[in-house]
Simulated scan of single mutants.
Amino acid sequence: MAIRVLLLAAALLALSSSHGAIASDPSLLQDFCVADKMSQVRVNGLPCKAAKDVVVEDFFFSGLHMPGNTTNKQGSAVTAVNVAQIGGLNTLGVSLVRIDYATNGLNPPHTHPRSTEILTVLEGSLEVGFVTSNPDNKHFTKVLNKGDVFVFPKGLVHYQFNRGTTHAIAIAALSSQNPGVITMANAVFGAKPSISDDVIAKAFQVEKNTVDWIQAQF
């Protein structure tokens, strides 16, 4: 009996470890691995800079106190701080963004294929939501105010919209050094080369001239 219990415990540990590996970036095997952005080596991530060349600035970024430019069609701006900005994030499995929203500003429906997101409202209020995968496509939505926190599960389509009368600011942490972003409208209607309007018209059950008009906006 004791052996069976031990084997079951070992199996559960292995299963949980394998799920942990899938759920986030791979664990680091040293104190740090500052990204060598000049290297020609291609790996799943970025190669390490030689330890002797690492400096304190490799772990530093300044700029999140600066508001993003929201004078665009969406009325929002995302300031990213990932491995592209801080080489020292390489292999650490985290990053963050500042998001600014004008009145009626929208961070449009999108997904982070490699990351869960946890968002905190710093100023203003936001309507946020995410949609579960097929076949249910259940919509979870809530209005957040200053100091409120909301989680968007990894890979699910989500958005934020400022219905308030003033600008809004949020900070979001992500569980990947390079979470990626796929904006639904951009991917479908702004693909280069374009997705056939026959395909999009059938997928969205609209006329081809409607598809052509929307594609022209991108």
Results as ranks from 00 to 15, higher is better:
Arg114Tyr: 14
Val94Tyr: 01
Val78Met: 10
Ala102Glu: 13
Gly75Thr: 06
Gln30Trp: 02
Cys48Gln: 05
Phe61Arg: 02
Ile86Thr: 04
Thr116His: 03
Ala102Asn: 14
Glu117Trp: 07
Ser76Asp: 08
Leu13His: 06
Lys73Arg: 12
Gln74Thr: 15
Asp53Cys: 00
Val143Lys: 13
Gln74Ser: 11
Phe150Asp: 07
Gly87Val: 10
Phe59His: 02
Ser24Ile: 05
Ala23Ile: 02
Asp136Gln: 14
Leu12His: 01
Ser17Leu: 14
Asn82Lys: 01
Gly129Thr: 05
Asp53Gly: 00
Phe59Arg: 03
Pro113Cys: 05
Phe32Cys: 08
Asn69Pro: 05
Val43His: 02
Pro26Asp: 05
Leu15Ile: 15
Asn72Lys: 06
Leu119Gln: 11
Ala80Asn: 09
Lys73Gly: 01
Asn107Ala: 10
Asp31His: 08
Gln85Met: 10
Asp58Ser: 06
His112Thr: 04
Ala102Leu: 10
Ala35Val: 12
Lys52Trp: 01
Glu117Leu: 07
Asn72Leu: 10
Asn90Arg: 02
Ile22His: 10
Leu126Asn: 09
Phe60Ala: 07
Val97Phe: 06
Asn90Pro: 11
Ala23Gly: 04
Asp136Trp: 08
Pro47Trp: 04
Val43Ala: 01
Gly63Ala: 08
Cys48Ser: 08
Glu127Gln: 13
Leu46Trp: 13
Asn72Gln: 06
Asn44Arg: 13
Val97Asp: 01
His112Phe: 10
Phe32Leu: 02
Ile99Glu: 06
Ser125Pro: 00
Ile99Asn: 04
Ile118Lys: 03
Lys37Gln: 08
Lys146Met: 09
Ala23Arg: 06
Asn44Trp: 04
Leu126Val: 12
Pro109Tyr: 03
Ala21Trp: 15
Asn82Phe: 08
Leu144Glu: 07
Val131Thr: 13
Ser17Cys: 09
Asn134Val: 10
Lys37Thr: 14
Leu106Phe: 05
Tyr101Ile: 02
Val78Ile: 15
Val97Tyr: 02
Gly63Ser: 06
Ala14His: 04
Gly124Ile: 10
Val41Ala: 11
Asn137Thr: 05
Lys142Val: 13
Ala14Arg: 04
Ala51Ile: 14
Lys52Tyr: 03
Asn104Pro: 00
Val131Arg: 03
Leu119Ser: 13
Pro26Ser: 07
Val149Ile: 15
Pro47Ile: 02
Met38Gly: 02
Thr132Cys: 11
Gly129Arg: 03
Thr103His: 10
Asn90Asp: 06
Asn82Thr: 13
Val55Gly: 00
Ala77Gly: 00
Ser39Thr: 06
Pro26Gln: 06
Gly88Asn: 06
Tyr101Met: 04
Val121His: 08
Lys37Cys: 00
Ser125Tyr: 02
Asn104Ile: 04
Gly129Pro: 07
Gln40Gly: 11
Val34Leu: 10
Lys142Glu: 12
Leu46Gln: 07
Leu89His: 06
Lys52Cys: 00
Ala84Glu: 13
His19Ile: 14
Phe130Trp: 15
Val56Leu: 12
Asn82Arg: 05
Gly129Val: 03
Gly68Leu: 09
Gly147Ser: 09
Leu12Phe: 14
Gln40Tyr: 01
Val56Asn: 11
Val143Ile: 15
Val121Arg: 03
